[in-house]
């Protein structure tokens, strides 16, 4: 990806402070290397020729700012990604939640919702969906619209169905959606249990108490300091004995909240709040 225009670190810092000033969005504690790579990618896609032009456009054009957020954040996701992770949810986490009158789950940085619908399927299969609420939040309103639609590309279903089976699923995966041309539309009964909201892990606060919080492959885009902020926020939003689930290469180790958590014995990236 060799863009003709290469921004210096100083120029990127200027753009980031413009974003705070004009829109109240703070990206300064994102992982610098990947943020830079995403910005360079945007410059190439939009054939931006000068720093001045880019800066001006971001400052003046709110629609372009929206595009910036949509393109600079990474929305790649999958249903039942890391099947063994979902198997652990099925076998060790969901049974612990089963006795609650109301189960509240938070998907922070849910992207287009594949993870949320995967969870809804697990709950359905455990006969718990009717008393569960899945809060799906993201910084990017465009992806939340896709969660609301509950439609995913048909071309992915073969892969997702394999993932599902590996996660311990016993049904025919196709019973959960209706094929409409090239999209798979997931069952309406899932949607009624999903609550959508924009929520920025950089600046927003706790809004409820949960028994399970999933934040997978979101904090890889944050530096250590911002990771700690987000983890404090999750800690404040998690009931005692609640579960916190991270992505497969993320860890609570070395974080400020670590002493209050115990990782599941099978070393999946799921921690239980013990004190």
């Amino acid at each position: 990806m060799s863009a003709d225009l290469n921004l210096t670190d100083e120029q990127i810092a200027i753009i980031l402070s413009d974003l705070i000033e004009h829109y109240g969005y703070d990206f300064t504690n994102y992982s610098a290397a990947s943020l830079k790579r995403r910005i360079q990618r945007l410059l190439t896609m939009d054939k931006v020729v000068s720093f001045a032009e880019f800066r001006h456009r971001i400052q003046r054009d709110a629609d372009y700012f929206k595009r910036f957020v949509e393109q600079v954040t990474v929305n790649v996701t999958e249903m039942f990604r890391d099947a063994h992770f979902y198997r652990t949810l099925r076998e060790q986490v969901i049974p612990e939640l089963a006795t609650r009158p109301l189960i509240r789950i938070w998907h922070a940085g849910c992207s287009t919702g594949e993870e949320v619908y995967s969870m809804a399927i697990l709950l359905q299969e455990a006969n718990l969906l009717h008393k569960s609420l899945l809060y799906a939040t993201d910084i990017n309103p465009a992806v939340l619209e896709k969660v609301r639609l509950g439609m995913f590309p048909m071309s992915q279903m073969k892969q997702y169905s394999e993932n599902y089976i590996h996660s311990g699923g016993r049904n025919d995966f196709s019973k959960y959606y209706i094929a409409q041309y090239d999209t798979a539309k997931f069952d309406e009964s899932f949607k009624s249990r999903i609550i959508l909201a924009t929520h920025n892990l950089v600046s927003d606060t706790s809004f409820n108490e949960f028994q399970l919080i999933l934040c997978r492959n979101v904090m890889i885009y944050f530096d250590k300091e911002l990771q700690d902020r987000a983890l404090e926020l999750f800690d404040n939003s998690l009931e005692k004995l609640g579960f916190l689930a991270l992505g497969s290469k993320e860890t609570l180790k070395f974080s400020s909240v670590m002493s209050r958590y115990k990782q599941l014995d099978n070393k999946e990236k799921i921690w239980r709040k013990v004190s």
Binding site: S31, A33, S34, R37, I220
Partner: peptide, 18 residues
Amino acid sequence: DYHLLLEKNLTFSLDISE
């Protein structure tokens, strides 16, 4: 399944983009 990036402060960042 992750891209691997190097940060100037001598740490790694992972990235799951395309």
